Amino acid sequence: MLDLTVIILTKDEKKHIARCLECVNQFASKVYVIDCFSTDGTQEIARSYRAEVLEHEWPGNQAAQFNWALSNLLITTEWIMRIDADEYLLPELIDELKLKLPSIKKGINGIVFNRRHIFLDKWMKGGIYPVKILRTFRNRHAVCEQRLMDEHIVLTDGDTMDFDNDFCDHNLNNISWFCKKHVDYSIREAAEMLDLEYGISKSNDTVNKLSTQALAKRKKKMAYARKPLFWRSTAYFLYRYFLKGGWRDGKEGFIFTFIQGWWYRTLVDAKIFEIKRKCGDDTEKIKTVLQEEYGIGL
């Protein structure tokens, strides 16, 4: 087994957790499941695959939950991997890990993988593939940045290297679940977009420590935040569907790009529009509405 610990955050992941653990048990020395009091038997399934399960109350976002794990688990391995319960590594990436990880030179403290989105059991080759994301890092050399949305693992020192192969984001829930998830995400995304526009939180950003693609994505998001409401969501859909080739993925590609690339982005803009109607450009009023109506503090 590799000198590597895997951390998985869960809440009612009965549909996915066995598949994920079957994957990581092929290479990880230790697997922790940080559960938030699941009621569907996730914990029992995880223990049956020899994962160590710890319960921890949800602190409000994934970044805080993952950083709690980094601070409180007794991790003795050289490397740590973050993976979600609905994700798994392809066999080619497992082989690449086994081949390369033991000999990575000092100073390389993060590893970037390609992420595939599998939607309705079909690989979304067009639109946004490949998403490059840092998911493995040396112990004590990285944290998860504290953001409402689009949080990334960031290195505290050292450099990253890219691996060639893919892991998959393959959720097995239905489209209603997929839409509800994006409804829940939309107010957090709206709050972050307002923060980008007005600089409300005045928090110290960590963009200098992001991987190359994550940094490029963050810059694009900042540029997107300056574009007109509603126009930008439509332009983004057209860009992903036509210019980036989402149309090549058939009906599944249309549904995926429509929901994630237009409907969701338009819903975010609608919530921003609603908040601005109430508050104008008054940042203190915006902060108050976000806190009192949505429980989001900036």
Rank of each mutant, 00 (worst) to 15 (best):
G107N: 05
S29L: 06
Y49C: 13
F242W: 13
T234D: 08
N171D: 15
W79S: 14
K278N: 08
M124P: 10
I133S: 10
E284G: 02
S103W: 06
K271S: 00
I111P: 06
D86E: 03
T5V: 15
I34R: 14
D249W: 08
A28H: 06
E192W: 14
D121A: 03
I83C: 02
I7A: 06
D86W: 01
L134M: 10
Y198D: 01
T212M: 09
R277F: 12
D86G: 02
A225H: 02
D12G: 06
K98M: 10
A190Y: 08
K181T: 14
V143Q: 01
Y264T: 13
G245T: 05
D166E: 13
I118S: 02
Y224R: 05
M81E: 08
K271R: 09
R232A: 06
L120Y: 15
A142P: 01
H16S: 10
T5F: 01
H56M: 01
Y239I: 11
D35A: 13
F66W: 11
L74I: 14
K217D: 03
K181Y: 00
K209N: 00
G250R: 03
Y129W: 07
A214L: 15
G107V: 10
N208K: 09
L229Y: 03
K219T: 05
Q146D: 15
A225C: 02
V207H: 05
R265N: 05
G41I: 12
K251C: 04
P91Y: 14
F273H: 12
E293S: 09
N139L: 07
D157I: 15
A191H: 02
C168A: 14
Y198H: 11
L89F: 14
F66L: 15
K15A: 10
T76Y: 00
N174L: 10
T206G: 06
T77G: 01
F242K: 08
E87V: 02
I34C: 06
K125Q: 14
V143L: 08
Y185W: 15
Q213A: 04
Q62H: 08
K30Q: 10
L134I: 03
H141Q: 08
T266P: 02
K98A: 08
V112D: 00
Y294C: 00
F37A: 03
Q43H: 05
K106E: 09
R82A: 04
T10S: 10
S201N: 07
E13Y: 07
I200S: 09
L93I: 04
D121V: 04
V289L: 12
F66T: 13
T136N: 03
Y239L: 13
A64P: 00
L134R: 09
I7D: 01
F242S: 11
R47C: 04
